[in-house]
């Protein structure tokens, strides 16, 4: 008899796996935490939690609208529900998130795996490029997109300590560790990962690593770039955005998301009101994705490190 097939991507150091492992690790300290799943825990990293805490794992079936609104009800009994599925299905249930979680101001954590082109071969139907824009516009909702396994571990704990609704992206592909041991995530605080004086590049999720990669090459050409990790999309760290506008000549945002409504828009909203320095947006230019490996897609849709380098040159020409 052949062995059961190994599910693709169910192991490794992806953001989803790091989140699932960390949540499982800290769960004994948070006895009120329960995880809601829509038959996809193997893909979201929550299989770790299911295995260790079967009594605190709520299988909701493939029924995301009910799952989302039900989370509000669970929170109303004092539990801390963590709603988990792919980011696209968080869109399917966004009206439930709006009313039963955002408007009702319930202490629910919405943890979305499989955001952006980072999803890869499953294609456009599963590649969610709209979630940051949509969830950002829900009042009361905090929106996060941590950049590496260390930050997602810290953020997983931080969202449980925070009282109120949170939307957090994890990620599908294997994620590089890019942050130092001394890094400390805080909701609402952007962090400068590398200083520079010419241009500031602001990333979130998988794009922060690409920005660091681009910075190395740009430095060789004598261009000094500052890299800022904007893992909180909402509330945006306005002070950091203004500081970078004052201290560097222009700002570039990079995101695995539609350029409409996501990180770039959030940063632009701050800039135009305070110090409208020139800005470039690196992101998916209002299109859907397609099947392919994440690195191939990043190249084709202009969100890889080369696209960042190109946009830095474009920006410098405008200054």
């Amino acid at each position: 008899m052949s062995k059961a097939p190994v599910l693709l991507g169910s192991s490794g150091d992806s953001l989803r796996e790091a989140c699932g492992k960390e949540l499982t690790k800290i769960a004994p300290d948070y006895p009120n935490v329960v995880v809601l799943d829509a038959d996809i825990a193997g893909g979201t990293g929550m299989h770790h939690f299911r295995k260790t805490f079967p009594d605190r794992f709520i299988q909701c079936g493939i029924a995301e609208q009910n799952m989302m609104a039900m989370a509000g009800g669970l929170a109303a009994t004092g539990l801390i529900p963590v709603v988990t599925t792919f980011a696209v299905f968080m869109l399917r249930s966004i009206e439930q998130a709006r009313l039963s979680i955002g408007y009702a101001d319930m202490n629910v954590k919405i943890v979305a795996s499989h955001p952006g082109l980072d999803v890869g071969p499953d294609g456009a139907s599963a590649q969610c490029l709209e979630d940051l824009a949509c969830y950002r516009s829900i009042p009361n909702m905090v929106v996060l997109s941590p950049c590496d396994p260390l930050e997602i571990e810290q953020a997983t704990k931080a969202i449980l300590d925070y009282e109120g609704p949170v939307y957090m992206r994890t990620g599908r592909s294997d994620a590089q560790r890019i942050l130092g041991e001394d890094y400390q995530f805080e909701i609402g605080k952007a962090k400068i990962l590398k200083n520079g004086s010419d241009i500031t590049i602001m990333g979130c999720g998988v794009t922060t690593g690409r920005a660091l990669e681009a910075a190395k090459i740009l430095e060789m050409d004598g261009i000094s770039v500052r890299i800022v990790n904007m893992s909180t999309i909402k509330p945006i760290d306005s002070a950091m955005v203004i500081k970078c506008a004052n201290e560097t000549k222009g700002i570039i945002t990079v995101e695995d998301h539609n350029i409409l409504g996501g990180l770039g828009s959030a940063v632009a909203e701050v800039l135009v009101q305070h110090n409208p320095v020139p800005m470039e947006f690196v992101g998916v230019r209002d299109s859907f994705g397609e099947s392919g490996e994440p690195n191939e897609l990043a190249k084709k849709y202009g969100i890889d490190y080369k696209a960042i380098i190109k946009s830095v040159h474009q920006l410098l020409e405008r200054i």
């Binding site: 009910n66 039900m70 009800g73 669970l74 009994t77 539990l79």
Partner: peptide, 14 residues
């Protein structure tokens, strides 16, 4: 309705 189901499940779990 879903919210009520969540409350029922939450009370039962506790």
């Amino acid at each position: 309705f879903s919210f009520a189901i969540g409350e029922a499940k939450g009370l039962k779990m506790q």
